[in-house]
Design a protein around this nucleic acid. Structure first.
Length: 881
RNA sequence: GGGCGCUUAGCGCAGCGGUAGCGCAGCAGCUUUACACGCUGUUGGUCGGGGGUUCAAAUCCCUCAGCGCCCACCA
């Protein structure tokens, strides 16, 4: 038993054990194992990503689940990997290449050369996050690490495309899509954020053609007027009845456009009259189709104005064009008014610029297995935690719309479609000479949605797939419920015929102390690696888990991590305390020698184990962490270790040994309960304490990783060791006694180092063992037993639960008035409580309707308060007389 | 415009029908032989407002208010 240092130093410990686990293949899943399977696939982080607190939360939860599953006898596969993250990665690399002066635009390099550069970049800088996850202690099976652009994976993606095309789920069409003018690609609806903003509503006058007067249209986007092809009013709007069939003269373009009627127009909004820009607004596009209007494109894919917009506007950015249009209209006197107006504008999540509705040829997917997937969550075949997210899911599924899956990028899975003149073929390999492949790549999520099975070797029926699919749990953020979770469910049913996972745990979002989202621009997102360096990975994990209740956002505060570190240190020192006493790991506990304290802590351990099991069953990890914290610190350290010092001082070797045996029992259980949360320190202590020798795992290396998860103490155990529930009550009442005496100590300002000499006034003495413990806990040298005792005036007294009176002979050290005031206040409180209970009991309906047990509880409570009252009164009398 | 969530001690949360709890912080005192990353004691709350159901409501129902998310083609 080596001497262990006073403070826990995680730095020296963590890397050592992580390497040990890797060297012994502890995380490698064996599909041939006879143990029941437990599997999780990691939400693959972007290859370009670096670890954030969000990842810490997410992956700590997965690690806790995986580690506990190993201990409960499961064969665990936690499958890791990274996502190629199409737009994100391409943007990052483009920026880097521009900075290096290697290109101005990717066209300069050409497609093949550019992709080569991205791979180079990926090999060099990608996957930092994987190393960071290892620092966190993530027990992933790294032998199975996958990347969504691996050759095999790519084949899966293309095969799925080909299959869905053949089934008619995938089609190509000219549609109005969300266009990102910065990234110059189409986006899915989910990739667009609607942002409320203060804008303006411009009221423009459009002169009526060949007539008098004008019609007023209101718009939030003046620049689009250059592409107007009509003005629309509601068919039943009486105000415009006389204008039907007429035309207006579109200012700036000097072009005649018709006045049309359409149901889509809301007569109550603005002037009830709307300009129609078919090529640049989804609603207008619909109207244009109905009225066969031309699609005049005035904004180019890069966000600048086209030639058709007119010579003065050609080449201007859309925002500049807006200003110019307004200026010109004002100059013409055609601006009626400009109102302040709050509206919502779609922004690209990727590049942060406003999206542009844009008409183009794209590939679309009509989702497969929708009905089955909707039902799965409804019926609980797939469970969401917290459950309420299933409503959000159901809502989205009910209104599901086709998914635009093509992207005008280079980094990604290329659309497996080939063209030769008018011929089109959908297949993975080129059909031969003269065929050219579709230039588009697929949305990143079109590969991620296959993650649970594509990572396991699909379409082969691999051993891994057979053993570990469906996966058990998925841990992810609710922000990607549509992007990823829903789509994986559908892909799972379509291709595996089974759910992708049984449970989905939705984490909260990490926010700062003020409740703001973590963001780079706010500078409020701390670097987890720095926190690990400062406090240790275990501290970070425990701190984050303690403050992450199921289904709620997490308000991050570095103080939590500090708390985690303190806790690790406490655990460390509690073990150190055990180590300071001679004796190897003790064997059997001798039931005959058990003290009440021993029995109490064993029962509290039992409760803690049970609470842990409940918390895990409900995915309440913060509850589990709180239970551990409370049990270990407030029960084991504060009471058990302190009282154990009495028996450890004893000269009876057998007693001492028995106490150590109880400690070993509790610690060996506690370390295992803690392990999923704080894996490093528990492994270190497992070895230092020598417990691994008691429980070597079959895994080769001696490690806590596969030590059995503690089971609640059963009735046989309790009978054998005489663990009866009364002990809890007895210990509780002793704790109260000790606290009261300590309280008096504090009130009378008796320093801790001044020992007390107490007097016990009662017919019977206190058993010597018990006496020794009480003396130790309150800092007394002696408790003298007296049949008769005449206390001095105002001498403080406490009433032990086992009867008699315990006097604390301190004189002249206190302020009588202060003490009187305290007692009076106490008395007042007691009276209030008595009144409360009496009122209840006095209600005639109460006795009639209440269950007998509750009635009895109330009566007991009244009795307790009344006896407390009597004691207080007598103390007060002693002071006054 | 719909949907969801939150509101309990200064802060963060638990409790979800029978005495309002925990952790931080605060205050007072401690080099007590595991730990100052510590020990001991202790002050804070009419459980967002109003109404109802019940013997009994923080807990169930209704209503109002504030905060926060998500979804939705009102220019």
């Amino acid at each position: 038993m080596a001497e262990i240092p006073k403070a826990y130093a995680p730095q020296t410990v963590e890397d050592k054990w992580y390497q040990f686990w890797l060297d012994h293949g502890c995380f490698t899943a064996n599909p041939q194992s006879s143990k029941p399977a437990y599997s999780i696939v990691i939400p693959p982080p972007n290859v370009t990503g670096v670890l954030t607190l969000g990842h810490v939360l997410n992956n700590t939860i997965q690690d806790i689940l995986a580690r506990r599953a190993r201990m409960t006898g499961h064969e665990v596969l936690w499958l890791p990997g990274t996502d190629h993250a199409g737009i994100a990665t391409q943007t990052v690399v483009e920026k880097a290449l521009k900075k290096q002066g290697l290109m101005k635009h990717r066209e300069d390099l050409g497609r093949d050369k550019f992709i080569e550069k991205v791979w180079e970049w990926k090999e060099k800088h990608g996957g930092i996050i994987i190393q960071q996850l290892k620092k966190l202690g993530a027990s992933c099976d790294w032998t199975r690490e996958r990347f969504t652009l691996d050759t095999d994976y790519s084949r899966c993606v293309q095969q799925v495309f080909v299959d869905l095309y053949a089934k008619g789920f995938i089609y190509r069409g000219k549609r109005m899509v969300n266009w990102d003018p910065a990234a110059r690609t189409a986006l899915s609806d989910e990739e667009v954020d609607m942002v409320e903003q203060q804008g303006h509503l411009w009221h423009f006058k459009y002169p009526i053609a060949g007539g008098e007067g004008y019609i007023v249209v209101a718009t939030t986007r003046p620049e689009t007027m250059l592409g107007d092809e009509a003005v629309a009013v509601h068919p039943n709007d009486p105000r415009y009845e006389n204008l039907r069939g007429k035309s207006v003269l579109l200012p700036l373009r000097d072009k005649t456009i018709p006045i049309i009627t359409d149901e889509l127009v809301d007569p109550k909004f603005g002037t009830g009259c709307v300009k129609v820009t078919p090529a640049h607004d989804p609603a207008d596009y619909e109207m244009a189709l109905r009225h066969k209007l031309p699609l005049t494109v005035v904004i180019a894919p890069d966000g600048t104005m086209t030639e058709i917009a007119g010579a003065e506007f050609f080449g201007l950015d859309r925002s500049e064009a807006r200003k110019l249009v307004v200026d010109k209209m004002e100059a013409l006197g055609l601006v009626l008014k400009i109102e302040k107006y709050a509206n919502r504008v779609g922004y690209s999540q990727r590049s942060g610029v406003p999206i542009e509705p844009y008409l183009s040829e794209q590939w679309f997917l009509r989702y497969p297995s929708v009905e089955k997937s909707t039902k799965a969550v409804e019926t609980g075949e797939i469970r969401f935690h917290p459950e309420r997210w299933s409503k959000t899911y159901a809502h989205w599924m009910a209104g599901i719309k086709d998914w635009c899956i093509s992207r005008q990028l280079w980094w990604g899975h290329r659309v497996p479609v080939w063209y030769r003149q008018k011929e089109v073929r959908c297949q993975i390999e080129s059909p031969g000479e003269g065929w050219t492949q579709d230039p588009d790549v697929l949305d990143t999520w079109f590969s991620s949605w296959l993650w649970p099975f594509a990572t396991m070797g699909w379409p082969e029926k691999t051993e891994t797939l057979q053993k570990f699919y469906p996966t058990t749990d998925l841990v992810t953020g609710p922000d990607i419920i549509f992007f990823w979770v829903a789509r994986m469910i559908m892909a799972g049913y379509e291709y595996m015929g089974e759910p992708a996972f049984r449970n989905v745990y939705f984490t909260g979002i990490i926010r700062d102390k003020q409740g703001r989202k973590m963001s780079k621009s706010l500078g409020n997102s701390p670097d987890p690696l720095e926190l690990i360096a400062k406090y240790g990975a275990d501290a970070l994990r425990f701190g984050v888990m303690r403050s992450a209740p199921l289904g709620q956002d997490v308000l991050y505060d570095e103080q939590q991590v500090e708390l985690g570190r303190n806790f690790c240190n406490k655990l460390w020192n509690a073990c150190r305390f055990r180590q300071m006493h001679p004796g190897e790991v003790q064997g059997e506990i001798n039931p005959v020698l058990l003290t009440n304290d021993d029995k109490w802590i064993l029962l509290r351990l039992d409760t803690a184990i049970r609470e842990m099991d409940v918390a895990f069953a409900e995915y309440k990890f913060s509850d589990a962490a709180a239970t551990l914290y409370r049990f270990f610190w407030s029960e084991y350290c504060d009471w058990y270790i302190e009282s154990s010092k009495a028996s450890l001082q004893s000269t009876e070797e057998a007693r001492k040994a028995n106490t150590l045996a109880v400690m070993d029992f509790v610690l060996s259980h506690a370390l295992r309960l803690f392990h999923p949360f704080i894996p490093f320190i528990t492994e270190e202590l497992w070895h230092d304490m020598g417990f691994f020798e008691e429980m070597p795992s079959e895994q080769g290396g001696k490690t806590i990783l596969f030590a059995p998860w503690p089971k609640p103490l059963d009735d046989n155990f309790k009978d054998h060791y005489g663990l009866a529930q009364e002990v809890i009550q007895e210990m509780f009442s002793r704790q109260k006694l000790v606290i009261e005496i300590r309280n008096i100590r504090a009130k009378f300002r008796i320093p801790a180092n001044k020992k007390l000499n107490l007097v016990y006034h009662s017919p019977f003495d206190i058993p010597s063992d018990e006496k020794a413990v009480i003396q130790l806990l309150v800092g007394a040298d002696s408790i003298t037993h007296r049949f008769e005792y005449q206390p001095s005036k105002g001498e403080p007294v406490v009433y032990p639960g086992f009867g008699g009176k315990l006097y604390i002979p301190v004189v002249g050290l206190f302020d009588v008035d202060e003490e009187k005031a305290r007692l009076t206040k106490e008395l007042q409180k007691t009276d209030d409580e008595i009144k409360k209970v009496q009122t209840k009991l006095g209600n005639p309906d109460f006795a009639k309707k209440v269950p007998p047990q509750v009635l009895q509880e109330h009566e007991q409570r009244l009795a307790d308060w009344q006896s407390k009252r009597a004691q207080l009164q007598s103390s007060l009398d002693a002071l006054t007389s």
